[in-house]
Design a protein around this nucleic acid. Structure first.
Lengths: 390, 390
DNA sequence: TTCTTTCATTGACAGCGGAAAAGAACCCCC
DNA sequence: GGGGGTTCTTTTCCGCTGTCAATGAAAGAA
């Protein structure tokens, strides 16, 4: 059973409607007055923007019965009806594809993943197609159609063009992924860089909601960073931004695959940690779990490795904070499993390297379930659905 | 003779008018069609925006007689009449005040500077007042009134509030400079951080015109950086941004006054270079000119100091480029006098540290006359005059 | 019951910007 | 030298958006 390409009703026709919708989407149930306050729109404009959105079923009158505090006519909060539309988000890594089915509020309904055997665009596309088909079938159970597909790929991705310019892990160059996936799945497709996609999810549905300047640092196989400046995700003039994994922290540090020395990733990336733990302990450590275990068991050598990794991450965050002065830094990623091991070192290194009032920046952590990357992809699809291009 | 505070006609009432005006201001004479193309406005809208601006004398029909190339009705380019309004820009350093009188196109008409004997707000304000008065007298000769005063101060400055939160060089805290200077001079006052002010000038009237993402690196006593992202100057959530002088490049590097080690400024700042040249050569070098002279004479030790400084700057630029992926980096500052000594090292270090396509970033230099900082202040005053707050 | 308070909506209205067509100013060419 | 072609500019009309001010609605308080 194939779903054919169709154009759903775009909820937000006017700028005001778009603004209202995204505000409600990010900040839970809100009264119309409150929406007006936050968007700097008049109450009348809010009413007029809300009506068609409610008529189309995207917004519903809230059931927020409790907060009955003061005098006057009771407020009638409005919220997004998550069940009104579904989206599929797919994260493509070098050896796995993770897909989630989310609702309009980007809550995950179903998650799936499959191993990837080949990395050429054809094979990957086939896997994506199969996985999406599965989720489309699942979606039928909800009685709502799927309104968009988001794909997250690491590397240099041109979201507007829908093209993967260059992905080192997949060894792709100039693959028109959006178009290809569109013909395979029959869905409107949005393609974006994985870190940026995750940043979008955080900006709209996470710890970045309502914050106009923040950084999202991902710790794992690589060390990445998504940036939001002036309320917008930074893409970089050449498609690359937030590459803190290749900030060179120490001229005498280990050689990085990028050719430089002392890169953060060459100190704090998964592979670097594993290799270094092996060197230090002399044990045949081959995966993060084992390295982590050793450190948790108290092996001083392993602990030292994590300490140095924490220091490197802390200094990288310091660099970002010195350059951009964000309001908040969110640390996330699979590497967070080792957070207890390097938290203090991150903090110390960050505090030492942050200059002046920039150090007031709020540094926090967020757990990152493995489907979260795919959820980020879904968030980009939701953006496109609402009519936000960048 | 005191000029009393007055509200001049704000040229740009509507967003479209503001857009048109700033476009013409930055990009010389433009035909209406071209303005429409650049602003994504319809020709009709351009005409309607231009008319009142011409009526008020801010725009004039260009005299661009030559470029008569093709068929059809000849184009009638429009440009800003610089002589329509004057502005004063003042840069306050620890020991000097530089002031310029500029026209609406931010061309310098008169420049003055005085030494500063005391740094307390009262004394500085008196000097500013005297200098502004001088320039106001000069301005009478042009037959146009001065429409705004811009003040540039290093440190943490809250432009919107007009308050200098903290300036280390002046040892000021929470000085409401805009208000104070307003009462002294009777002019509308804009206060901003010096690097940001310079960045504004570059964005509107310099190498940043038309570039939505760029960085301006200033090399001199300190190493600073102004950033423009998404077409807007970055201020940082806590008033601090672009602090690349305190990126730590080398854990084993020299101690910096900020308490950290291996800061760019501790390697490539004027004071650091002078001290290091003295150490290396054993000569009693006390100023930049002498250090520069030694290096230019071929002293290997001194040359090595500049080489290391260049490397530090190049790596700092690499960090900025990796984090933000700007389209262009403009290197400027008094330290550019030594550019021949470290240009190659900057280039090499930058190329090595920039990751992926970010390295495509266009790195260029711009001379920085001593009045340029004050011109930046004038540019902020022009912004305020037009009705742009941030 | 009536008043007060707060939230929400309505209808009139101003104004911005767009589409399309007309006007204007040149060159070219027959 | 008068069309014809081309390009820039303006005009006219019109839709649409968001504001203003007044009205309506839903409570608790007096």
């Amino acid at each position: 059973m194939h779903s054919s390409p169709r154009t759903d009703v775009v909820p937000a026709a006017t700028p005001a409607a778009s603004l209202v919708f995204t505000t409600v989407l990010s900040h839970g149930p809100l009264t119309r007055i409150e929406i007006g306050r936050r968007t700097a729109l008049s109450p009348a404009a809010v009413t007029k923007a809300v009506r068609p959105l409610m008529a189309a079923g995207y917004l519903v009158e809230g059931v927020d019965e409790e907060a009955r505090a003061s005098l006057g006519r009771p407020a009638n909060p409005v919220r997004v009806d998550g069940g009104r539309a579904l989206f599929i988000g797919v994260k493509v890594t070098g050896d796995e594809i993770i897909a989630v089915l989310t609702d309009l509020c980007c809550r995950i309904r179903v998650a799936r993943h499959v191993q990837l055997t080949a990395r050429d665009p054809g094979a990957v596309l086939a896997s994506i197609g199969a996985l999406v088909q599965e989720l489309l079938t699942e979606a039928e159970g909800f009685g709502v159609q799927v309104s968009g597909l988001g794909l997250a790929v690491s590397g240099d991705v041109d979201r507007v063009a829908g093209v993967v310019r260059y992905s080192p892990f997949l060894d792709w160059r100039d693959v028109p992924l959006a178009e290809l996936a569109g013909t395979v799945t029959g869905l409107p497709v949005t393609v974006d860089n994985d870190v940026r996609a995750l940043t979008v999810a955080e900006q709209w549905f996470g710890a970045g909601a309502g914050v106009s300047d923040f950084a999202l640092v991902t710790v794992g196989a690589g060390i990445g960073c998504g940036l939001v400046v002036h309320g917008r995700v930074v893409s970089g003039a050449h498609g690359v931004a937030g590459e803190i994994g290749h900030l060179s922290i120490d001229p005498l540090g280990p050689l990085c695959h990028c050719g430089n020395t002392g890169c953060v990733e060459a100190i704090a990336g998964d592979a670097a940690i594993i290799r270094r733990v092996r060197e230090v302990t002399g044990l045949p450590v081959t995966d993060s779990a084992r390295a982590l275990e050793l450190a948790h068991q108290g092996d001083p050598g392993a602990r030292e490795v994590y300490a140095r990794a924490g220091e490197a991450i802390g200094r990288a965050i310091g660099a970002v904070v010195n350059v951009l002065g964000p309001e908040r830094v969110i640390i996330s990623g699979e590497g967070l499993a080792a957070y207890d091991l390097f938290a203090e070192h991150i903090r110390v290194a960050f505090t030492a390297s942050a200059f002046g009032t920039a150090a007031q920046c709020d540094v926090m952590t967020r757990p990152l379930p493995f489907e979260e990357w795919a959820r980020g992809a879904a968030a980009t699809a939701i953006q496109s659905f609402i009519g936000i291009d960048t």
